[in-house]
Amino acid sequence: MTITLHSASAADIPAMWALRTRAVRTSCASHYAPDVIESWSGAPAPDSYARLLAQGGGRLAREGDALLGYAILDTASGEVDAVFVDPAQGGRGVGRRLLAELEALADALALARPLFLYAALNAVAFYQAAGYVRRRDAQYAHPSGIVLDCVYMDKA
């Protein structure tokens, strides 16, 4: 089957969040303590998702009816808010395609550059391979109330 990209809507949030929870539990566990993974993966979807998707910043990767991954761009700020791929689909280029789609969206909207993000520790190499530059170690105040060690990155 062919991987296709689609716009995301608020109706997609439950499936997106379930995929994100699997990704956090699987892909992030090598870089974060078990108690952090438990809090992070147990958090509900943030209210901001509906707003960001309503602004047109969400993209889904599907193969048939299967959700392979998703990405969200805050079209107001230029922040790459999320790129998550189902752990069972890693290595297929899904994340690269989703990130490239967000970058094309930013160009189409003539968003100010650079795009920026707070990369989970396990995702730093992925973003570097896509041309993002590590600027500083940071902490991200997750909507669940936990603070995650991360890396602030941007791409001109």
Rank of each mutant, 00 (worst) to 15 (best):
G90L: 15
N122S: 15
A123F: 09
A104Y: 02
M1Q: 12
V80Y: 00
R59Q: 09
E79P: 00
G56W: 11
E63T: 12
Y127T: 06
L98S: 04
Q89V: 11
G95W: 07
A71V: 02
G93K: 07
V83K: 02
A45H: 06
A10I: 02
M153D: 08
R25D: 05
L73F: 02
S144G: 10
A129C: 05
G90C: 11
S39D: 12
D107N: 09
R113G: 12
A141G: 13
L5G: 10
Y152D: 05
S9N: 10
Y32F: 13
G93A: 10
L98K: 04
S39Y: 02
T2H: 13
R59E: 04
K155W: 08
L111N: 09
L109C: 10
A119K: 04
A130H: 11
A112E: 14
A54K: 06
M16I: 06
L19Y: 00
A123P: 02
A125T: 11
R113H: 10
L52S: 01
L73M: 06
A120L: 13
P44Y: 08
R20H: 14
V24W: 05
A138Y: 14
R25F: 03
V133E: 15
Y152R: 13
E103H: 00
V124A: 09
I146H: 05
A29S: 15
L5Q: 11
Q128G: 04
M153A: 14
I37D: 10
I13A: 02
D149R: 12
F84C: 00
S27Y: 03
A45Q: 09
A15L: 06
F84A: 00
R51K: 11
L102T: 01
A43I: 02
S41V: 03
G56H: 11
L109P: 07
I13Q: 02
A23Q: 04
Y32R: 05
R96N: 08
Q128A: 13
D86F: 02
A106P: 03
R113P: 08
P34G: 14
E38V: 10
D81W: 02
P14T: 05
T26C: 11
Q128T: 13
A71H: 01
V94W: 01
